[in-house]
Amino acid sequence: MNTDTEATISESIVQVDNVTLAYSDDVILRNINFTVKRGQIFVILGGSGCGKSTLMRHMIGLDQPVKGDIIIDGDNIVTAINEQRLKILQKIGVTFQSGALFGSMNILENVCLPLMEFTSLPKAAMRLIALSKLHLVGLHGVADYLPSQISGGMQKRAALARAMVLDPKILFLDEPSAGLDPITSAELDQLIINLAKSLEITFIIVSHELSSIYAIADEVIMLDETTKTITAQGKPQYLRDHSTNPKVREFLRAGVHGEPAH
């Protein structure tokens, strides 16, 4: 399984090139380099507050890095403006840590929004597409509810449906399974694997759920708050057993065998 995926995911789709990120004068991460290959499930790991969400915000063009380039499918999102930027944004879908559904629209309208703004499909078609995406993430019968009327985990899945509605090539998910029960979380993992392998969608995921990381990740990077850099990169199973950095091994072992980190 691993060997044949390796062959299909050789082409790089996202490239983070010597990037330094800061909020005003606070440097969060320094000289970050990594490459994500097409169809890969790439997981960003690290302790709370180490800058995972920040890195993601920069990769999707919400914030400007102090330095460096971020290439998304051939275009640099750091320098892109107007049409070019829009072109990049249409290749990606994003879900945020908080779900970020539009509170004034119901779930169906939320999922339909990108279709309405960027396609001229008939209403019925939009509805069908939106409902099928909701079905895909396991949401049934909540189309007419407002975001505030469904649970946090459901909101996250609705946000994922919205992020997928235009069939983007790359999906950025910030802690998609936080707050989901183990079964739904496992289903979400399966969905991610299916989408990656069948549609060649690339996933860049921020996650803390070790069980899910082992289940889905082709490659992980681990960020460190004190050094402000990537401390480890590779397959999670490999890093867990062979990383030279004890911190990394500990992080990847914590919780999996039910034993506390020491």
Binding site: I60, V94, F96, A100, L101, F102, P114, E117
Partner: peptide, 13 residues
């Protein structure tokens, strides 16, 4: 603060 504005911007809106 709900990141809805961010979400819009990533949709190109």
């Amino acid at each position: 603060i709900n990141q809805e504005v961010d979400s819009l911007r990533t949709m190109g809106l």
